[in-house]
Amino acid sequence: MSIREYVHIEPEQENRAIAGYYEVEEELLIPVNNQEVLCILGYVCWDNSCCGSGGCRYVSVPGYIVDYKKAIDKKGRPVSRVRKITKSEEQKEIKDILRKKIRNLQIIDI
């Protein structure tokens, strides 16, 4: 039930696109409701977009940890299994924690 794989992107490495780049800064495991939530913190910069430039810090939240880095993918990157956070109260709780922890950031849909 809404369990999916999360391929860990190597931190502090520039992921370049034509319009800009992003970088994962660190991964956080935040305890919520006796479980651990995987949060990916990073920075995005759009420096060659067709429509202006800018950047911001962001966080994405793949979900509650089911298995942490117990597998690897074809390219040798660690893979976790996560359970997507679907309850809106839990989403809100996690967003509030994140907003308190890290200011001024983009929170990608949990």
């Binding site: 391929v7 992107i9 992921n15 696109a17 034509i18 319009a19 800009g20 780049y21 992003y22 990916i40 990073g42 995005v44 759009w46 060659n48 977009s49 067709c50 911001c56 962001y58 994405s60 983009q106 990608i108 849909d109």
Partner: peptide, 21 residues
């Protein structure tokens, strides 16, 4: 994965959804 996990430029379009100049 790198594409889908990329941050937003204009939700729901992420960095790799957008072209450059």
């Amino acid at each position: 994965d790198t594409i889908i996990n990329a941050p937003m430029v204009a939700w729901p379009l992420g960095l790799y959804d957008c072209c450059g100049v």
